[in-house]
Design a protein around this nucleic acid. Structure first.
Lengths: 352, 352
DNA sequence: TTGTAGGCGTTATCAG
DNA sequence: CTGATAACGCCTACAA
């Protein structure tokens, strides 16, 4: 702790006792009394350094330390409207995809001395909007991760206070999104290099903005690499969803498959293996995201890493930047994706 | 500290203010004006229903709705000191163990209309204490998940505002901890039933309160089931730590192993399998916690489930209860653990 | 039941 | 550079 050993003058020490006896937390009034100055001077000294003579500055700082003073955020927020706080709303706390985002945002927030308040929308657009509205009055800015509400609602929120969106592109609002091109390109090229001719893409939720982008990326890359690409729909982007889609994937006759996310890939692999199919000898599987646990499987999952942590972190940075510089551009920030080759993909083995 | 000078610029500041003044948030004064009553009446009508005549109540509510009024949390917090907010500090956001805790706390908090503010201690006792202190002034109560600070500091915090501890028992502070007995009992009995005679326990961090409890549980259960129990130390409770400890585990000659947590179990299994050892035919592995991804492995991990989500949820409930009922008991709440049998444990196969 | 007045801890606006 | 003093929006005795 920063408990100063250097006790002030005896007089000051007495004043401290007196001030403290009053109530729980010391206020700038207590400090003012101890330092022998006006409360407003204390406020100045503590909030905007340089506006006060060095002498009184030190006097005040010492008194503050002695009293173990800490600002009352609410009192401060009242006149200024600013709290050192920002909100993060994720679609589903259960989904590991968001863990990294949360972590990233939390970490860079803390670094800049901001506090993170967290909420979940439970995949509901209404809940999401409600939470967002409630939060707006409490925080300085908001990060929306994979928001489910519609563009207009997002823009409305953004008109009120700074908002940054992750994993979706909204016109007029600063966004942070993984750019799938590099990663999908690498994945498809790797697959093509291993002799695959036909690739199946297991799509995510129909309304998912990201799923559409990934499918586009896959198609483009396949065209370039002269691979045939077919699309398979999934019922839900989970391990179970992956299991369920195994049959359809098999039916396509593709020897390589890229899934919308890792969960699907893992479920798919489990089901395929349960059916006696050897991965990657008979079929290569590549996931998307590189979530926690992607390397727990046997073989460990090859996947296109989406730097979620970086997204969270970047979004937080962007937000804090907006908070400080006022306006700023609403240009969207793209972070790179990359292929992480592990065991679930590779050369096709001659049957037999 | 990083306050930009632009903030002080009269032009920018004025513009912002003006823009906000245009559609500034309605206050109880505005409502009072519209409804033709006194602000204090509005306050009463909005905060404690029943203290106002039905007629004016409706009048006020209509006006509030019309003005799209929403309370200013800071203004409210100033006189009352309460914010409808609680903090959660976890040792490591990276650790999947905490995901469920966060989720549980967040969910039940939201249900009761409380907001969750999240912080991480990065496994540092000092950081933890600092965050805790900072938070204390902002929140109504605090949940400490696997805290690293010492008991006295926790008690001091608890003396200030309600505090609930998860995964550790602190005298005089309400705690929520998984009770290992049932789960370890089931695990050991299951192992014994499958013909195992010797069991190795891979311990967690030396200073971990939980690791000690688990080892005790294992010892007790083994004694009861007439199994020989040996303890093996690990360098760190992670997948890598699990890999590193494989050699030592093998050296004990045990045919069954229980690990401090799932991460260790997964690493251990990977290393063992890499060495050509078949799980569970040659050795049974049982983890602890049942974290996300525990069933991604091949074979899926048998584990003693620690209801982390429930812990988070229970802790939040406990906290809100304290917040509402004032004092209350500091009795610790124990939640049950249970064995989840999956593929990594089973009957020993005759060598050959 | 409703109005009056004072206070919560800071910041902001003026004077001096 | 520093000291008064008024907001900030709401709550709560205390009166009426």
């Amino acid at each position: 702790m920063t408990e100063p050993k250097t006790q002030g003058a005896a007089a000051s020490s007495g004043a401290v006792k007196k001030a403290r006896d009053g109530k729980a937390n010391a206020t700038i009034y207590d400090i003012a009394k101890v330092a022998g100055v006006n409360p407003s001077t204390v406020s100045r000294a503590l909030s905007k350094p340089g506006r006060v003579s060095a002498k009184t500055q030190k006097l005040i700082e010492d008194a503050a330390a002695e009293l173990n003073y800490q600002v009352n955020p609410f009192a401060r927020a009242l006149p200024t409207g600013r709290t050192h706080t920002f909100g993060l709303i994720v679609a589903d706390i259960t989904n590991p995809t968001f863990f990294d985002i949360i972590r990233g945002a939390q970490t860079t927030g803390t670094q800049r001395d901001y506090t993170l308040v967290l909420a979940e929308s439970a995949e509901s657009a209404i809940t999401e909007l409600t939470s967002a509205r409630r939060m707006m009055s409490t925080v300085d800015g908001l990060i929306l991760a994979s928001p489910r509400m519609n563009d207009d609602d997002i823009r409305t929120l953004a008109g009120d206070k700074p908002v940054v969106v992750i994993n979706r592109e909204v016109e007029g609002v600063p966004c942070v999104i993984p750019d799938v091109r590099k990663g999908t390109g690498e994945a498809v090229r790797s697959l093509a290099g291993n002799g695959h001719k036909k690739l199946a893409f297991v799509a995510g939720p129909a309304r998912s903005w990201m799923s559409a982008r990934r499918w586009e990326g896959v198609q483009a890359a396949c065209e370039w690499s002269r691979l045939e690409a077919v699309r398979v729909e999934s019922s839900k982007p989970t391990v179970d969803g992956g299991r369920e889609v195994a049959r359809d994937v098999r039916a396509t006759g593709a020897t390589a498959v890229l899934t919308y996310n890792d969960l699907l890939a893992i479920g798919l692999m489990q089901e395929l293996q349960a059916a006696g199919i050897v991965v990657p000898d008979e079929i290569s599987i590549v996931g998307f995201d590189d979530i926690f646990g992607a390397d727990f499987t046997t073989p460990p999952l090859t996947t296109v890493r989406s730097p979620l942590g970086e997204c969270g972190s970047a979004a937080a940075s962007r937000l804090l930047e907006l908070l400080h510089n006022g306006g700023g551009s609403t240009e969207t920030l793209r972070v790179e994706t990359e292929l992480v080759v592990r065991g679930s993909s590779g050369r096709l083995l001659p049957a037999g």
